[in-house]
Amino acid sequence: MAVNKKKHWYDYLWIWSIIYFALGFFNILFAWLGMIDFILPLIFAAVGGNKWFCNHMCGRGQLFWVLGRNLKCSRGKPAPKWISSKWFRYGFLIFFLTMFGIMVFQTYLVFSGAGTLRKAIKLFWTFRVPWKWAYNGSIFPDWVAQFGFGFYSLMLTSTLIGLIVMVLYKERTWCSFCPMGTMTQGICKIKAKKGNET
């Protein structure tokens, strides 16, 4: 943030990012709160035709900025061109949505009784990490917790990827291939085009 700019309440949403992961560490049901960051950008894009969420409210982007720029944890070097190329952005979006779909399917298996609740999170869609302490039963059925574990895995994995590219390249390199960013920009482009035709 430039020096003279007035600070708004939403400039501190990077704190929310940290709180989110802290809450999910103790109780996985809090992972559901991440749906806010999933749905809100889409509402902004679909209704308002803007990327106001990305531009001002993204706690993750802000966190990368705070760590990368303010705490100097980023090399600040330009990222390779292919990272922000269209094929990689849309390819990553498709991959991400596929993984999201698989996660929802696993939740469905637990819901239908065909699968059992696994108290673990999966990092980088590969490494299973025990996460037993975060759930000891609740008033909700098991599938609610299963979704929590799955969604938390997704959020943590994408943040870790973002942190890696933050260190290696520019602070907010994640933004250049963030699936939410690609999706919302895509929606905005379609809306802008339609607006021009009519």
Partner: peptide, 14 residues
């Protein structure tokens, strides 16, 4: 064509 509309530039602009 390359811009991802993330808005970091706008946030930075003094």
């Amino acid at each position: 064509d390359i811009c991802v509309a993330c808005g970091v530039c706008a946030n930075q602009c003094p």
